[in-house]
Every structure is written in structure tokens, then in C-alpha cells.
């Protein structure tokens, strides 16, 4: 048996979608009951870490619009997806918001073994703008400082693992790993929690060496875009390896035995310090009934895979 978790935004049910569109009286109670339902589903699947389904989050960056002097602006496509996020313009003198931006947007009923996901600084800076920090490096570093305060607050309240979402590292052809590393160092230095950097929306086969040198506890890969054969060429003896085996971009339900075999093969070749399985990116790209099924399958894969 290995461990498991999910990260990112979950899909809203048809009932909740309608309620958000009509702003019905029972909207808050629907959000709450659906959040609790997803938390129960993760517990029932025996996932190693449980995450908030982030049902109120319109996109993974939106809570940060609550920082002072941050303005939501145009809609932008999320990479090559048919989904859009709101670009935030950071215009304040500094970005620190007191460390309660993420925490205040997470459900209080999460169990002890809880994890939270936030964008990593390089991706954050790539997808948003700042009138104050004109140089991308300055923007990235200042976002990292802001995120560190948020993460400290999460760790203090018991979050044992922090998922850092870095799709731009995968998607962008050119990545300045010096900046990525400097920003991650700000986030992870002395932190008493596991930090796992997830790359998706692009093939990172040629970037794995650079990724292995980053100051994070582990790396997560989307094996629909980065072939397992590329990952298997590397040793993960001093890193956690998370395989994003559940495909959030297709309704086809994974076959547990095939997945277990694949995970065992990857682990035999990479010899990771710790092994996890997860979704490849936000489950909100499939409707709820498929997401629920996939959570259950994820637990089954984790239970069936050989311990490392």
C-alpha cells in the first residue's frame, strides 16, 4: 500500500451549479453539504491526505483577489483548456495579506491528515500582472513571500502537506529554473510540512533533472502529458514521487489493476523516498459523478500498489 491525495478544484453538482446561477436561498447550505460530501468520499476511499474540494473557488487564484490593491481583470484561457481564469492585477506596495487568504477559504471540518494546494510563485507570476513589480523576477519573489505567510498559517493549523501547483513550469518551453528555485526556497526553507510540486498541462520529460534539484520534498507528474518512461529514467531516492494516475480530463474510468501495475513498475525503477498517487489536475474538468468514481478508484490504486 502507498499513500494518496487529490488536489485542486472539484466539480459542482448540477444542483449546485443551478443554485450558483440563480443565487438561491439555500446556496450556502448546498456549498457546505457538498463540501462535506466530498470530504467523506475522500475519507471513505482511505486517501492518505484529505483536501478541501474548493467548491466556492471560481479559479485557483481567485481568493487572492481579497488582498489589498489586487484587482480582478480580464478572463484568460487556462493554457489550452476550454476554461478561463480571471487575471489579477497586483498594484499594491507589498503583497502580504496577513496569512489568512487561503486558510479562511478552506473548510474547518477537514480531518487531521489534511493537505492544501496553492499555486507556486513562478506560475502565479506568469499568469497575472503587476503594475508595482515590473520585472518578472521581482514579482515572482514577492509572490513567494506572500505565499510563505499563507503556508505558515496553514502549517500552523495542522496541514501536513502543501501541494504547489506549477503548470507553467510544464507548459512553458523556456523556464528559468533559477527563479523557480529561489522562489521555492522562500516557501520551503525551514517549513515543517511536506511540499510537493505538481507539473501538468505539458511534457516535462526534458526538465526532470532541473525539477529534481528544486528545494521541495517531492514532485508530482501528470502521466498523460509526461510519459512514465521519462520519469522512470530518474532516481527519486531523496524525493517524494507523486504519480498523477487519475485523468481529470477524461470521463473514462481508470482500470485499477492496470494502474497498480504501472505504479509498481514506476516505483521499481525510480525507487522514490515516498510514493503517492493523485489526480493529474483539478477534478472539476469532469462532472461530479465521474469525479466521485475517480476518487474511489484512486484509493483502490493506492491500496493495491506495493509499498516502497
Amino acid at each position: 500500500m502507498i499513500s494518496s491525495y487529490t488536489f485542486g478544484i472539484y466539480p459542482r453538482s448540477e444542483e449546485l451549479i443551478e443554485a450558483t446561477r440563480k443565487n438561491t436561498e439555500n446556496l450556502d447550505s448546498l456549498f457546505q453539504s457538498e463540501t462535506e460530501g466530498y470530504i467523506s468520499a475522500q475519507k471513505n476511499a482511505n486517501l492518505g491526505f484529505v483536501s478541501d474540494p474548493l467548491l466556492k473557488w471560481d479559479d485557483i487564484f481567485r481568493p487572492f483577489s481579497n488582498l489589498s490593491e489586487v484587482t480582478p481583470t480580464a478572463l484568460n484561457r487556462i493554457y489550452e483548456m476550454n476554461t478561463f481564469y480571471r487575471v489579477l492585477s497586483f498594484d499594491g506596495q507589498d503583497l502580504v495579506g496577513g496569512g489568512n487568504i487561503v486558510q479562511s477559504n478552506l473548510d474547518s471540518s477537514l480531518p487531521k491528515n489534511k493537505t492544501a494546494a496553492i499555486p507556486e510563485p513562478f506560475t502565479f507570476a506568469e499568469l497575472h500582472t503587476s503594475n508595482k513589480f515590473k520585472r518578472k523576477e521581482d514579482f515572482t519573489i514577492n509572490l513567494a513571500k506572500m505565499l510563505r505567510v499563507e503556508i505558515d498559517s496553514l502549517v500552523e493549523s495542522g496541514f501536513e502537506a502543501i501541494q504547489l501547483l506549477g503548470p507553467s513550469i510544464a507548459y512553458n518551453k523556456e523556464v528559468d529554473f533559477g527563479i523557480v528555485s529561489d522562489a521555492l526556497k522562500i516557501i520551503t526553507d525551514g517549513l515543517k510540512a511536506k511540499t510537493i510540486l505538481h507539473t501538468y498541462f505539458g511534457d516535462v520529460s526534458k526538465k526532470i533533472e532541473s525539477l529534481l534539484n528544486l528545494p521541495v520534498s517531492g514532485l508530482g507528474f501528470d502521466i498523460t502529458t509526461t510519459p512514465a518512461s521519462s520519469i522512470e529514467k530518474h532516481s527519486f531516492s531523496d524525493k517524494i514521487l507523486t504519480v498523477g494516475i487519475i485523468n481529470s480530463f477524461n470521463t473514462a474510468i481508470e482500470k485499477p489493476q492496470e494502474c497498480i501495475k504501472q505504479i509498481d513498475e514506476i516505483n521499481a525503477k525510480t525507487k522514490p523516498k515516498e510514493s503517492y498517487v493523485s489526480n493529474n489536475f483539478d477534478l472539476e474538468y469532469v462532472p461530479k459523478k465521474f469525479a466521485m468514481n475517480k476518487i474511489s478508484i484512486l484509493g483502490e490504486i493506492a491500496r493495491g500498489a506495493k509499498d516502497v
Partner: peptide, 17 residues
Amino acid sequence: FAGRVRSWDNKYYNKAR
């Protein structure tokens, strides 16, 4: 049809398999 998937915010489209 599989169900609705978000385009942005509270806007969704009915996506099929």
C-alpha cells in the same frame, strides 16, 4: 452527455462523451 463543466465562474457548458 456527461454533464456540465465550467467555462468560467458560474458559467458552464454541457459536455459530452
